[in-house]
Design a protein around this nucleic acid. Structure first.
Length: 331
DNA sequence: CGTATTTGACCCTT
DNA sequence: AAGGGTCAAATACG
């Protein structure tokens, strides 16, 4: 539970970092800056809410509800708070100060309502009776096999992201993952087409993560990015700014408490050289260790490292083991 | 020459 | 049936 709070805050911080980076570009784009700020505000609000929730339930009753997180995340609340503060102070001192001010400023008027997508698809059509079993022949004439198309019940996370002010504005900004476009479609009622991306490493790790990008007709400078599926690869080869903060952000805004915690490994972040670190420690070997799961707090460091290498995937295959996917079914 | 994107057809969901 | 999502051949790109 508490690590949820920490994660939330962390996400907010990542967002804030992003904003800071884009500050020069956003300077003359009040709309987008406002959007970005709203996102950050929203993120912090979510974190705060969770924290209050947590502390409330922690001191009144001790019937800690069985959250769906790993058991390794059972940490002492005090400890968490301390470590969290430590982390906040050590790695993001300046920004954090401003951010908290910002937060207080905007706390009252959180206006952004992303993540209110059509989430009413509670039930899934698990077996869409895929009738013709394409008798496994090499009959490539007319009927295409088409295996499992729409993965059953994949939750969608929707987020708005401002278009980059420089370079190719046709493309949404980097989000920390490498995507490969596999389709584009005109959408009814939208001026702009919607593009479909899937994770570049889908083959390697059966990474089912996908996203679709659509720029709003109201404001072409803003993309609506919808994420689907989880990354089973934890790769960040072309990361410009950070992690898939969209996912994270949306998670906050819709109280989707269980999806994210399974993707992040909350505990290892907490062991971030609290205090003595002085920032630049662990730069040589340390980061590689955290590459697999929880390198989120060290995003800048990780980025610095990853950015230097381009996208040569095959050489890294052994580095990115399929993680803890305890699902041996391999088709 | 291998990899990524484009694009129309195909198929699934509503 | 319409609209949306995906496939895969063709093409572009490095």
């Amino acid at each position: 539970m508490m690590e949820e709070v920490i994660n939330s805050i962390r996400r907010a911080c990542v967002l804030a970092q992003n904003l800071e980076q884009d500050l020069p570009n956003l300077a003359n784009q009040p709309a987008m800056m406002s959007l970005s700020i709203d996102q950050i505000t929203e993120a912090f609000s979510g974190a705060k809410e969770k924290m209050l929730q947590f502390s409330r339930q922690n001191q009144t009753s001790d019937e800690s509800p069985p959250t769906l997180v790993h058991e390794t995340t059972q940490l002492q609340p005090q400890m968490d708070a301390t470590l969290m503060q430590e982390w906040l102070r050590s790695s993001h001192a300046l920004t954090m100060d401003q951010l908290f001010q910002m937060h207080q400023f905007h706390a009252a008027r959180s206006t952004l309502q992303i993540g209110e997508m059509g989430g009413r698809d509670g039930e899934d059509n698990f077996e869409r009776n895929k009738g013709p079993e394409e008798m496994q022949g090499i009959n490539e004439s007319s009927s295409r096999p088409r295996r499992r198309s729409r993965e059953a019940n994949q939750e969608k996370r929707k987020v708005m992201v401002p278009a980059p002010q420089f370079g190719n504005t046709e493309m949404p900004p980097e989000d920390g993952f490498t995507w490969r476009k596999y389709g584009q479609k005109e959408i009814l009622g939208s001026k702009f087409p919607r593009s479909y991306y899937r994770c570049t490493h889908q083959k390697l790790y059966e990474c089912q993560a996908k996203k679709q990008v659509q720029r709003l007709d109201q404001n072409p400078n803003i993309f609506e990015v919808t994420y689907r599926g989880d990354h089973t690869c934890h790769m960040s080869s072309t990361a410009l700014s950070s992690v898939p903060l969209q996912q994270l952000l949306v998670d906050i805004t819709q109280n989707n408490s269980n999806t994210i915690s399974s993707q992040l490994s909350p505990t290892m972040n907490l062991s971030l050289h609290p205090g003595g670190g002085s920032g630049t420690a662990a730069s040589s070997g340390g980061a590689s260790a955290s590459r697999f799961g929880g390198d989120y707090p060290v995003v800048d460091m990780a980025d610095a490292m990853f950015n230097s290498r381009s996208s040569s995937n095959n050489s890294m295959e052994f580095l990115f083991s399929p993680e803890d996917k305890s699902d041996p079914k391999i088709e």
